[in-house]
């Protein structure tokens, strides 16, 4: 497997470690092949979200490197805009633009960042929203939608930039149980289409069905990784077993 996303020795500290700062990433290396779906699990504070957010530079590493395709994300003076175009991000809290309609949310970035003509951007946005099952909600405001619908719209918004890799930061953690499935269905479909995905999530069903690779993180390090069947079925490390006992 040739690595499409390549993370090497990522280190990130929040605050001053000498004075109670937190070492969020303690030398993490991870390869994600093109078209692979990697699910990262681990207790809160294990650094999994920080790792994800480092890939599109919402966090800056203290040291180490991240590469997406041929772009060295962590290079000094890297083209921030291009990297963020390449990596689509889906947040736990959806973060749809509250003052815009669903359609405008999806059409804005291609128009503003890629200079796609407005009419064309709106047309594409409409077809993306149809794909995630929101064809009848185009003119609604985010607050008029359910959480599941908002998250599906957020996925469409990220897809509108034709990203090469999609980052999901606990996409279903803020959702009511009955809405989790509709979001996971969209993500599963995306995985089947061959999208490269890096997913922080505790949805074991999704990980089993869609993931090529599962990574367990704790205290800023990767403790164990492997196929979903291996990590969930025969975890080697005591900490992994402990964690899985708690969430299963």
């Amino acid at each position: 497997m040739s690595a499409f996303v390549e993370i090497r020795d990522a280190v990130k500290t929040f605050g001053d470690p000498a004075r109670g700062g937190v070492l969020a990433l303690d030398g993490v290396s991870l390869d994600v092949g093109r078209g692979d779906v990697v699910v990262i699990i681990g207790p809160s504070g294990s650094g999994k979200s920080t790792l994800l957010r480092s890939v599109n530079l919402l966090e800056r590493l203290d040291s180490g490197s991240i590469r997406i395709g041929d772009d060295l994300v962590t290079a000094r003076g890297a083209d921030l805009r291009r990297i963020r175009e390449d990596a689509g991000m889906v947040f736990q809290a959806f973060n749809l633009f509250a003052h815009l309609t669903v359609l405008e949310n999806v059409a804005l970035a291609p128009h503003l960042v890629r200079h796609v003509p407005k009419a064309e951007a709106r047309q594409r946005a409409a077809s993306l929203l149809e794909r995630v099952g929101l064809a009848d909600k185009l003119d609604r405001r985010p607050r008029q939608l359910s959480g599941g619908q908002q998250q599906r719209a957020a996925i469409a918004r990220a897809l509108a930039m034709d990203p090469k890799v999609m980052l999901f930061d606990e996409p279903t953690s803020a959702l009511d149980p009955e809405m989790i499935k509709e979001v996971l269905d969209v993500m599963t479909a995306l995985a089947e289409e061959g999208m490269t995905m890096l997913v922080v999530s505790h949805e074991m069903g999704f990980a089993r069905a869609a993931a090529d690779h599962v990574v367990f993180m704790d205290q800023g390090r990767i403790v164990e990784q492997g196929s979903p069947a291996r990590v969930f079925g025969e975890p080697v490390e005591e900490r992994t077993r402990d964690f899985l006992r708690h969430i299963l």
Binding site: L58, R82, E85, M89, F91, N95, L96
Partner: peptide, 13 residues
């Protein structure tokens, strides 16, 4: 909300 700003940054604004 800070999330609004992060979302904009993540989209390349």
């Amino acid at each position: 909300d800070k999330g609004q700003i992060e979302a904009a940054h993540a989209l390349g604004f």
